[in-house]
């Protein structure tokens, strides 16, 4: 366990030491604040724009932060850095788990950094109540967990660039997998069962995407996302993350280094 924590800590420290990164996050918060100036251009929708922009950027920050995992594991393998680690009494499972935990910690810290900045902006502009942003932010954290697991899986058998591209594609299309469920609902019983099973196996990031629904609750009187739904979707994210990460460990064990 100490080895895992040591690798996680060093992974986090390695990513988090960049000061430029924090400058970038501060610029993002400034960008979110600037949405408040678009009242005339958007014909009175600057509040909606501010909240939607803030939530979209939090999601991008989370996704961008975990992409490094897909990049890092293959890079360390290529540069033989991982071999040095693995020649010591550190197992492959420990190595990958440490990398995974360090990256997730890095991504969650980044999300919280931007989310707190966003909440302060919302508090001052009075465009929404900051606590109303908790549910969509939790959804982003759930998405980050799933994406990190996918990054670990791809990184365990692909090269750097393909792994990053594959993780990015999961981020992009994982929000639209409900199209398979819709297709299933339009077909007969057997096809429906097959398509629904396929849908269930895919990384359904849309189940964790409550950003649009939360914004619609705030500004369009839509039904609110319940705490029960948030808990069950986060439970799903944790379960899916665990399963995919176990798959990543399995693949990584078989890999010739």
């Amino acid at each position: 366990m100490d080895n895992v924590l040591a690798i996680a800590g060093s992974t986090y420290a390695q990513h988090a030491k960049s000061k430029a990164l924090y400058l970038l996050w501060i610029l993002l918060i400034v960008l979110i604040t600037s949405a408040n100036r678009y009242d005339v251009l958007s014909i009175g929708r600057s509040k909606v724009l501010l909240v939607d922009l803030g939530l979209a950027l939090i999601s991008l920050v989370g996704a961008g932060s975990v992409l490094v995992l897909g990049f890092e594991v293959p890079r360390e393998l290529r540069q033989k850095v991982a071999e040095n680690l693995l020649s010591k009494p550190v197992g492959r499972d420990q190595y990958l788990t440490g990398k995974f935990l360090g990256t997730v910690l890095f991504a969650v810290c980044n999300i919280l950094f931007v989310a707190v900045g966003f909440a302060i902006v919302v508090l001052f502009t009075k465009d929404a109540e900051p606590q109303e942003l908790i549910i969509p932010t939790l959804g982003v954290i759930g998405m980050v967990l799933m994406l990190a697991a996918m990054g670990a899986l791809f990184g365990s058998f692909m090269g750097e660039v393909p792994a990053v591209i594959a993780t990015f594609l999961v981020f992009w299309f994982g929000h639209s997998t409900q199209v398979v469920a819709k297709m299933a609902d339009q077909t007969g019983s057997v096809a429906r069962a097959v398509l629904r099973t396929i849908y269930g196996i895919l990384p359904n990031l849309d189940l964790l995407n409550t950003r649009a629904a939360s914004s619609q609750t705030l500004f369009a009187g839509a039904a609110p996302i319940t705490a029960a739904y948030t808990i069950e979707s986060l439970g799903y994210a944790l379960l899916y993350t665990l399963v995919i990460f176990l798959a990543a460990l399995l693949v990584f064990r078989q890999r010739d280094l």
């Binding site: 409900q178 469920a181 629904r196 099973t197 849908y199 269930g200 196996i201 895919l202 359904n204 189940l207 739904y229 069950e232 979707s233 439970g235 799903y236 379960l239 899916y240 399963v243």
Partner: peptide, 12 residues
Amino acid sequence: CSYCANTIYDNK
């Protein structure tokens, strides 16, 4: 996961 995802989708 497949079972959970389908249940949560219906809830959503």
